[in-house]
Amino acid sequence: MEIDIGWLMIIVGLVLLIIEASQPGFFVAVPGTILIVLGAIVLLIPEYAQEWAPVIVVITALISSIITIIFYRRIAPGHRPLSTSMDILAGKEGIVVDTIRPDAISGKVRVGNQIWSATGDSVIEAGKKIVVIRSEGVHLKVKEF
């Protein structure tokens, strides 16, 4: 039993697409699409397949890459990474998570949805509201609100 190269390309291309569908992120959709298109051309118009194969591969790769990128952007839209410049924290309100003690950075406060090491001029118990005075390195200087 002899299998035609066109059918082999289509089968391998389909397997790659199935792998991509079941385990997204391997990025085998583009080569899978190329193999399917090239296999179909080999089967349908074999006289052009060998001569035009490089052009067909490049065009198919470009089109399927663009479609794949658009598809992945829709199913997993990009989002900005969570980052906070400490310069903008001054004046923000928060709540004490771990008791704050003067001259110690073991205290913890929640400002927004982030937890920061904090210190203050007086003891501030957990659960109390605070306001950020300034940032000192990666720690916050706070006072009770």
Rank of each mutant, 00 (worst) to 15 (best):
M9A: 07
M9S: 08
I10F: 00
I10D: 00
I10Y: 00
I10S: 00
I11C: 06
V12G: 03
V12P: 02
V12M: 08
V12A: 10
G13K: 00
V15S: 02
L17F: 00
A21D: 00
S22E: 05
S22W: 05
Q23S: 15
Q23H: 13
Q23P: 00
P24V: 10
P24Y: 07
P24C: 13
G25F: 11
F27I: 10
V28G: 03
A29D: 14
A29Q: 08
A29K: 03
V30C: 02
V30E: 01
G32Y: 00
I34Y: 03
I34G: 09
L35A: 06
I36E: 00
L38Q: 12
G39V: 01
G39K: 02
G39C: 03
A40W: 12
V42E: 14
L44P: 03
I45E: 08
E47M: 11
Y48F: 12
A49Q: 05
A49Y: 05
E51P: 00
W52Y: 08
W52I: 07
P54K: 10
V55A: 09
V55W: 14
V57Y: 08
V57F: 12
V58E: 09
I59S: 10
I59K: 15
I63A: 06
S64K: 04
S64V: 05
S65T: 15
I67Y: 07
T68Q: 07
T68C: 05
T68M: 11
I69N: 13
I69D: 02
I70R: 15
Y72T: 15
R74Y: 15
R74E: 09
I75V: 15
G78E: 13
R80D: 13
L82F: 06
L82G: 02
S83P: 00
M86F: 11
L89P: 01
L89M: 04
A90R: 10
G91S: 06
G94V: 01
V96W: 03
T99V: 13
T99G: 07
I100R: 03
